[in-house]
Simulated assay, not measured.
Amino acid sequence: MAIDDLLDEHEQSERVLAWLRSNGAGLIGGIIVGLALILGWQWWGGKQAASDMRAGDDYQAMLKSLEAKDIKKAQSQAAALHDTPYAPLAVLDLAKAQVEAGQRDAAISTLRTAQSPNPVLEQVIKRRLARLLIDSGKAGEALKVLGNEDDPATLEVRGDAQVALGKREDARKSYTEVLAKLDVASPGRRLVELKLTDVGGSAAKPEARI
């Protein structure tokens, strides 16, 4: 190997060593930070999993309280679940038990506090609240709770609220829209047809969907 080549290699190695001396602390720091982030993420994931497991156990405990007809205890347990994924389910179960126990106003209060990031569960909560409001003579408030959603289940409850308010024409429109969205074989179709007939409408013969 030529002397020039040896000098070039020596010079390059010296440059690398000089660069490492200047930037080594930063590299090590970056590696440490990266490891800390990875370990921190794993720790947080493990902590979150453990928290979810505890919440699941707490939810099961609440259900046992409901089975034992201890609504007061279940109410306290449901409140403790408010920051967990089980919160909307706990609220729905609690409200159902309250209604069955003749505590309609308490069930309304329970459902008013319910929130869910899941849009499907959110609509279930709103429909149940709206039905209870209609039953308690607050059909106008029920309409506000339902908002502008136009899925069949919500439209049916909206029609019920409109009937309670004496708005039969609006109810006919709502029920007609429900039937237009329901499949021919839907188990709830016959009931909606009866509701439509009751407000002076007539259900068109549905066309089978292929």
Rank of each mutant, 00 (worst) to 15 (best):
His82Tyr: 12
Gly56Met: 07
Lys96Glu: 11
Thr84Ser: 13
Trp43Gln: 15
Ala204Trp: 00
Met1Pro: 12
Gly102Thr: 10
Ala142Val: 07
Val157Phe: 01
Val157Gly: 00
Trp19Asp: 04
Arg21Phe: 00
Asp57Met: 13
Asn118Gly: 04
Ile134His: 00
Leu81Arg: 06
Ala74Leu: 08
Ile108Met: 03
Ala2Gln: 15
Asp83His: 07
Arg15Lys: 13
Ala171Asn: 01
Trp44Ile: 11
Ser51Gln: 15
Lys167Thr: 08
Gln77Lys: 03
Ala36Glu: 05
Gly56Val: 06
Ser116Trp: 08
Leu94Gln: 09
Glu14Ile: 03
Ala61Gly: 03
Arg104Ser: 08
Leu196Thr: 15
Ile31Thr: 06
Gln75Asp: 12
Asp198Val: 08
Ala50Pro: 10
Leu66Ala: 02
Glu149Ser: 13
Tyr175Glu: 03
Gln12Phe: 02
Arg131Asp: 12
Ala2Lys: 07
Leu129Lys: 02
Lys205Asn: 11
Ser109Glu: 14
Tyr175Trp: 02
Gly30Asp: 07
Ala18Met: 09
Leu89Arg: 04
Ala25His: 10
Gly102Cys: 05
Ala55Val: 15
Arg131Lys: 06
Ala153Trp: 05
Arg158Tyr: 05
Glu9Ala: 13
Leu20His: 10
Thr197Pro: 02
Val99Met: 12
Leu179Asn: 09
Gly102Tyr: 07
Leu6Pro: 06
Ala130Gln: 04
Trp19Val: 03
Asp183Leu: 05
Ala36Trp: 09
Trp44Lys: 12
Leu35His: 04
Ala90Gln: 07
Leu111Thr: 08
Ala208Gln: 15
Gly140Asp: 00
Leu35Cys: 14
Lys73Ala: 14
Lys205Gly: 05
Leu27Thr: 05
Glu141Met: 06
Lys173Leu: 06
Lys173Gln: 14
Gln162Leu: 08
Asp151Ala: 12
Leu7Arg: 15
Ala153Glu: 09
Glu141Trp: 11
Met62Leu: 07
Asp150Tyr: 04
Gln75Cys: 10
Leu92Lys: 00
Asp93Arg: 15
Asp4Ile: 04
Ala36Ser: 14
Arg104Met: 05
Pro152Arg: 10
Arg21Cys: 00
Glu156Arg: 06
Pro152Gln: 10
Glu100Gly: 08
Asp198Thr: 01
Asp5Phe: 07
Asp4Lys: 14
Ser76Lys: 11
Ser174Ile: 01
Arg54Met: 12
Lys167Phe: 00
Asp151Phe: 08
Gln98Ser: 06
Leu165His: 03
Met53Tyr: 07
Ala2Gly: 13
Ala49Thr: 15
Glu177Cys: 04
Arg168Cys: 00
Val120Tyr: 03
Ala49His: 07
Gln12Ala: 14
Asp8Glu: 15
Gly201Gln: 01
Leu7Asp: 15
Gln98Ala: 08
Ser22Lys: 13
Gln123Asp: 07
Tyr175Gly: 01
Ala55Glu: 10
Val178Met: 05
Leu121Asp: 00
Leu146His: 00
Ala203Gly: 04
Gly29Glu: 02
Ala171Cys: 10
Asp57Tyr: 13
Leu121Tyr: 11
Ile3Gly: 01
Lys195Leu: 11
Leu81Asp: 03
Gln60Cys: 00
Thr197Trp: 01
Ser65Arg: 15
Arg104Ala: 09
Glu177Leu: 06
Glu169Ile: 09
Val184Asn: 11
Arg128Lys: 11
